[in-house]
Write a protein that binds this DNA or RNA. Structure first.
Lengths: 209, 209
DNA sequence: ACCTGAACACCGTTCAAGT
DNA sequence: ACCTGAACACCGTTCAAGT
């Protein structure tokens, strides 16, 4: 009777690398960042605690791999948010912002490893952005460029405008201000929408006349 | 010769609690967040590694105390930034933003413990804001209220406007976008100023006529 | 080439015991 | 009341050894 065990993989795993990333992804969603330990990942993957070192030089490298797949999902969420809005550009920009903050809330642990400054060393510099992170930013920048072409957005530096919009929603997602004494009442999406409207119209009083 | 040792403090320390906070503050500035360990703090303070538990129930509680003094310095930096600008309100708002991001950069480790979601448990909720944090926010909110009174800022919900401005500069400080492929070139303060001008004037094209 | 097991140098936290 | 010392259950990482 050589049937019970579905995959033999007695010793060599086949693609432990991918399995470790998936296991880490599941673990982080289940029990948070603090529970994301090399040893537990190994145990869950049915492998010794030092096996990961054959595929990643470091815990930081495993986190980088996990972060990369997080940004894939993130970019997809932003695109989906944008496309769920109508054709008007301010509305599309706002929908992207809502999607951004929603992702930050619904996938809080992902969001943390994705954006937290480099997780392991005492180094103060941020980790290099991964491909999907740059792509996510370009989705936003392109939206602004299109909105400029149609005359909806002012013809300033589109990259700078994208930086400002990105920073705004990132700050909202990271600060969780809507949860604090400030600005209670409004449901989350409305809070984001209100902030994004402020960015679009500006804080300054309308020029009289 | 009973002179050499300044303070005897042979066994009981007197105010170990304050010493531990100061030691932690120094350690974090010196070697980063990762080096901020209860054991090392104890050793530096010349005390056993478990002595801290007489004054804090937890590492999280020590961090909360450290965060509180970080926010004191932070609020002072914001006020100083605001006052270093001229009397014009958009300029004062911008100066606060520059001070915000400067603090994030120059005191990166403080900034990390101050704003990072609760440091220890797997809990996903943010720690309660400390008194100085709320005060820092009110400095910003008051500036906007004053700017509304003089007609410089639009008469929308001042709290919401403060949330948007706070989120914007927080995102800039946290994301370090000026360090990335996007938006190179500009020195940091100019980058902040450009973003804050965008928030003030708005992303939308000026209404023709 | 890929993985294991024991080992090392760390953690936070607890608890009996000292003063 | 305040602190120590040993102990416990964890970490990441290394390295000889197995297959």
């Amino acid at each position: 009777m050589r049937a019970a065990t579905p995959a033999p993989k007695s010793y060599h795993h086949g693609n432990l690398r991918a399995t470790l990333i998936q296991t880490g992804l599941a673990l982080i969603a289940e029990k948070g960042v603090r529970a994301l330990t090399l040893r537990e990942i190994g145990t869950r993957a049915g492998v010794s605690r030092s096996a990961a070192y054959r595929h990643f030089t470091d815990k930081a490298q495993l986190l980088a791999a996990i972060r990369a797949v997080g940004f894939e999902k993130f970019a997809a969420a932003l695109e989906q948010g944008r496309d769920s809005a109508g054709p008007a550009f301010p509305a599309r920009l706002n929908a992207m912002g809502v999607a951004y903050v929603r992702f930050a809330r619904e996938h809080a642990p992902y969001f943390e490893v994705m954006f937290n400054s480099n997780p392991d060393p005492a180094s103060t510099i941020a980790p290099d952005p991964c491909e999907a992170e740059i792509r996510a930013f370009q989705i936003l920048e392109n939206l602004i460029i299109e909105g400029q072409a149609t005359g909806h957005f002012r013809p300033s530096d589109a990259r700078l405008m994208a930086c400002a919009a990105w920073s705004l929603v990132h700050g909202i997602g990271a600060l969780k201000l809507d949860r604090l004494p400030f600005a209670q009442g409004l449901p989350q999406d409305d809070f984001v929408t209100a902030c994004s409207n402020l960015l679009i119209t500006g804080l300054a009083a309308p020029t009289k006349k």
